[in-house]
C-alpha cells in the first residue's frame, strides 16, 4: 500500500511492526508485570542499575531483540539498512545512553508503554525527544551532514 503523498512510506509494514511491538510490551506487562523499556532493561542487564527486572530476565529480553530481527531477515523483511559511521555512532550512543538514564526511558518505555498509559512524565518526555530529534536532523540536513553510509 502506498500512502498518498508519501511514496516511500511503508504504512502497513509499520502498523504490523507496531502491533508486534505492542504485543511484546503487553506480554511484558501482563506476563512479567513490568514495563518493556529497552534502556532500563539494558542498564539492568549490564549491572548499571540495580532495581527492576531480574538480571536473567533482562538478558533474555535483550537476546530476543536481535533474534526477532534475524527472523524477519530470514523471512525476507527488514531490507538492507545503512548505518552511520563510527564517529556519529559513538556520539549518538553516548547521548542516547546518558539521556535515557537521566530521562528514565526511551522510545519503548516512554513512547509506547508510558504514552499508552497516559503518563504525564512519558508524554512530556516523548514530545521532548521527538522535538530535539527533529531539530537535530533538520540542522544536520541544513549543514549538509550525511551520516548514513
Amino acid at each position: 500500500m502506498i500512502l498518498p503523498g508519501f511514496p516511500d512510506a511503508a504504512p502497513l509494514a509499520g502498523l504490523a511492526g507496531g502491533i508486534l511491538i505492542g504485543l511484546a510490551a503487553a506480554l511484558m506487562l501482563l506476563g512479567a508485570g513490568r514495563i518493556a523499556g529497552v534502556s532500563g532493561i539494558s542498564a539492568r542487564a549490564f549491572g548499571i542499575s540495580d532495581g527492576g527486572i531480574s538480571r536473567d530476565g533482562a538478558w533474555a529480553f535483550l537476546i530476543g531483540l536481535p533474534l526477532g530481527a534475524a527472523i524477519i531477515g530470514l523471512l525476507g523483511g527488514g531490507g538492507e539498512p545503512q548505518y552511520a559511521g563510527t564517529v556519529p555512532l559513538v556520539i549518538a550512543g553516548l547521548l542516547v545512553g546518558m539521556g535515557t538514564r537521566m530521562g528514565s526511558g526511551c522510545t519503548s518505555g516512554h513512547g509506547v508503554c508510558g504514552v499508552s498509559r497516559l503518563s504525564q512524565r512519558s508524554i512530556v518526555a516523548t514530545l521532548t525527544f521527538i522535538a530535539t530529534g527533529i531539530a537535530t536532523v533538520t540542522l544536520m540536513n541544513a549543514l549538509g551532514l550525511e551520516v548514513l553510509q
Binding site: 530521562g103 518526555a125 530535539t132
Partner: peptide
C-alpha cells in the same frame, strides 16, 4: 535527559 536522548536519536537514527 529526554532532550539529550532525542539529539542522539537524530544523529544516528538509532535508539536502544
Amino acid at each position: 535527559g529526554a532532550a539529550l536522548f532525542g539529539v542522539g536519536w537524530g544523529v544516528a537514527g538509532l535508539c536502544p
